[in-house]
Simulated scan of single mutants.
Amino acid sequence: MRRSSDYGGQPIRRGARLAFAVAGVCTATPLLAVTVGHEMSLAAAERAQARALTGALTRPGPACPELARAEFEARHRPLKNVFDYGGVAFARRFGHADCTMIGRSEPGGGEAYPVCRFTAPAVLRVTPDRGRAVIFEVGVGRAARVIVRDGRVRCVLTGPFGFS
């Protein structure tokens, strides 16, 4: 008969070992099931939220008026609010910007691409990593959304001020 390594040296009975093992399995199985179920529901909720965000950010609208580079240089001073996001350079005259990457959270969703919202930029210059600069004259007090996908730049007007 084996002895345990505790101080009392009491024998461990075969039935007691089996009872401890069964109790451990019975306790761990429901906890594991609850944890896995919770993680799966969080992942599903995250995918649904990503789909809703993608739909909101890629909603169509009227196109922003494009401005030729020569016309921009003749009428406007250089843009001072410049930043890079997702390999794209953005410049604006006024307002605030909020950017996110779309497309990578869905399985098989393809390449991620940047979508940026601007509160009241007046003028926007967007330069993809391997492309020419595109300049948009949004107008003062107008909000805009810019999508850069596969090197193509798209700008849509979204209304006065605020994010939509």
Rank of each mutant, 00 (worst) to 15 (best):
R59L: 13
R149L: 03
M40R: 13
P121V: 12
R77G: 01
F90L: 07
A48E: 07
C99M: 03
F118T: 12
G141M: 02
A56K: 10
A112I: 03
A63V: 08
Q49P: 00
R117L: 11
H96W: 14
R125C: 01
Y7R: 13
V148F: 02
A19T: 04
E137K: 15
R2A: 05
P107R: 15
L157V: 05
V88T: 04
L157Y: 06
V153S: 10
G9I: 08
R2K: 03
P78G: 11
A19D: 05
T100D: 01
F90Q: 08
G61E: 03
G87N: 09
C26T: 07
R77F: 00
N81G: 01
M1H: 06
A70W: 04
R2P: 15
T27A: 15
L67A: 12
L42K: 15
G86P: 05
A19Q: 03
D98W: 14
P160Y: 08
A50N: 12
G108V: 13
A143Q: 03
V22W: 04
G87Q: 02
A122Q: 06
F161T: 13
R2L: 01
V146M: 02
L32Q: 00
V88C: 01
C116F: 00
F163P: 01
A68M: 04
P62L: 12
C116Y: 04
R47M: 09
R130T: 05
R142I: 12
R152D: 12
L124V: 09
V126E: 05
I135A: 02
L157M: 10
L57G: 07
H76I: 06
R14G: 06
A33K: 06
S4M: 10
R132W: 03
D84M: 01
A56F: 01
R130A: 09
F90W: 10
A43V: 09
R142K: 10
C26K: 02
R2S: 13
T29V: 15
T58R: 01
E73I: 08
V82F: 00
G110H: 00
S4F: 08
V126N: 01
D84W: 01
R69W: 07
L18T: 07
L67G: 02
A133M: 05
Y7Q: 14
V126C: 02
D150A: 15
C64D: 09
A133D: 05
R145E: 04
T58I: 03
E111M: 13
R13Y: 14
I12A: 03
I147K: 11
T100K: 07
R3L: 15
C99F: 06
F161A: 15
F20K: 11
R51V: 08
L67K: 02
G87Y: 06
Y85D: 08
P62N: 11
T29Q: 06
S164L: 11
T127F: 05
G108R: 13
L18A: 11
